[in-house]
Amino acid sequence: MGSSIMDPTGQTTRAEGALQPAIRPESLKGMTVGLLDNGKQNAGRFVEELGKVLVERYGVGRVVLRKKPVATVDAPAQLLDDLHHAAELVVIGVGDCGSCSAAAIADGIALERLGTPTAVVCTESFTATADAMAVIRGAAGYRHATVAHPMAGLPFEKVRARAEGVADEVASLLTGATVRRGAA
């Protein structure tokens, strides 16, 4: 066997823990939360309902809603930049397929790099995809919140129930210092 091929990105050797997560607030009280609807069916409803729960339960000050043009690829830099400026914290949903989960995680990591604490919500079927994407983007151990699969095609009440069920997990991802699973 020959010698190994060198990595031109400088990321491989320090992929674990390379991401410096954004600094978290102690609580959500009075904060402005950006809701990024990735455009998947029910995703808009879901993030809006989740926003309402965060207002009701945690005293979030206000929410701003944005929509991603294409769910399956990374959000345009301008959109993330806009969210970074318009909101103090961001929630992204819903990763309910392979490519859109990967893209949602990539968007979450990009926002963290801009300095905005972000919680990404994926359906439980895509944990493997989401975790792998975090490693690929130099953010091994980047945590996301999960809801039951599927999301598309659910009636409104069930979408609301999913939002209520995951709100505490989302809130904990957006606050406090711990944003990783025990150092991988």
Binding site: T72, C97, G98, S99, D131, M133
Partner: peptide, 25 residues
């Protein structure tokens, strides 16, 4: 199968690398 749901092959290789713990090459 949902055509647009599958990540491109270029992304699947590093994902397999991570999931299977096998170098991409």
């Amino acid at each position: 199968a949902c055509a647009e749901c599958l990540v491109p092959a270029s992304l699947m290789v590093p994902m397999l690398e991570h999931a299977l713990k096998v170098p991409g090459d």
